[in-house]
C-alpha cells in the first residue's frame, strides 16, 4: 500500500473489487462519539470520500461494510447482532477505535464486553483514540484485500 496516494488507491481498488462503489453502514455500540466524529469527517468537504466512490447509507440492508465503534455494552449487544444479520453476504466488518478493538478506557466489565470480536467476525482492526481519517481509509483498503480473497473463494 502506498501511503502517499491513499485516495487514488482506494478509488482504483473499489473499482477492481466492487466495480464502482462501496456502501458503509455505521454501527454505534456504545462509543463516546469520538470515533463517530472522525468518521463523519470523512464525508465533509475536507476529506470528501464521496469522490472515491464511498458513501454512508442509512440501512444495513444496502451496505457492503459495517463500521463498528465502541466496546459493546450489554444494551447494544442485541442491536449489533441484528445489524450484522441484516447485512447481505459477503459483508465486511471494521472495528474502529480502541474501544472496539480491545475495550479501551472502559475495559471489560459487567456492562461492557471489551471489543466486538466475541460477537461478529472482524476483518480489520483500526486502533487509535480516535483514529485519523487517513487511518480509516487505510483500514478500508486492507478490508478490500481480504474481501477480494473471499469473493475468489466464492463464499
Amino acid at each position: 500500500m502506498n501511503e502517499e496516494e491513499l485516495g487514488t488507491d482506494l478509488k482504483k481498488r473499489i473499482k477492481e473489487v466492487l466495480s464502482g462503489s462501496l456502501h458503509i453502514r455505521h454501527v454505534d455500540t456504545g462509543s463516546c462519539n469520538g470515533c463517530d466524529f472522525e468518521m463523519s469527517t470523512l464525508s465533509n468537504p475536507i476529506y470528501d470520500i464521496s469522490r472515491f466512490g464511498v458513501s454512508f447509507v442509512p440501512s444495513p440492508r444496502q451496505a457492503d461494510m459495517l463500521m463498528v465503534t465502541g466496546g459493546v455494552t450489554s444494551n447494544l449487544e442485541k442491536a449489533l447482532r441484528i445489524t450484522y444479520e441484516a447485512t447481505p453476504k459477503p459483508k465486511m466488518v471494521l472495528a474502529i477505535g480502541a474501544c472496539a478493538c480491545g475495550g479501551g478506557v472502559f475495559g471489560e466489565t459487567y456492562a461492557n464486553a471489551g471489543g466486538i470480536d466475541p460477537f461478529v467476525p472482524v476483518y480489520v482492526y483500526v486502533p487509535g483514540c480516535p483514529p485519523r481519517p487517513q487511518a480509516l481509509i487505510q483500514g478500508i483498503l486492507l478490508a478490500l484485500d481480504q474481501y477480494e480473497e473471499v469473493l475468489k473463494r466464492g463464499e
Binding site: E3, A98, C101, G102, G103, G104, V105, G115, V124, Y125, V126, P127, G128, C129, P131, R132, Q134, A135, Q138, G139, L142
Partner: peptide
C-alpha cells in the same frame, strides 16, 4: 488495541525505551 496514545508512559520513562511517534497508520 487498548492503547489510547495519551503519552503518560513516555513522560515517566527514564530511558528511550518508550517513544511517541506521529505515525497514525495502525490498521
Amino acid at each position: 488495541g487498548n492503547c489510547i496514545q495519551c503519552g503518560n508512559c513516555v513522560k515517566i520513562c527514564n530511558t528511550d525505551a518508550l517513544t511517541q511517534t506521529t505515525d497514525c497508520y495502525q490498521a
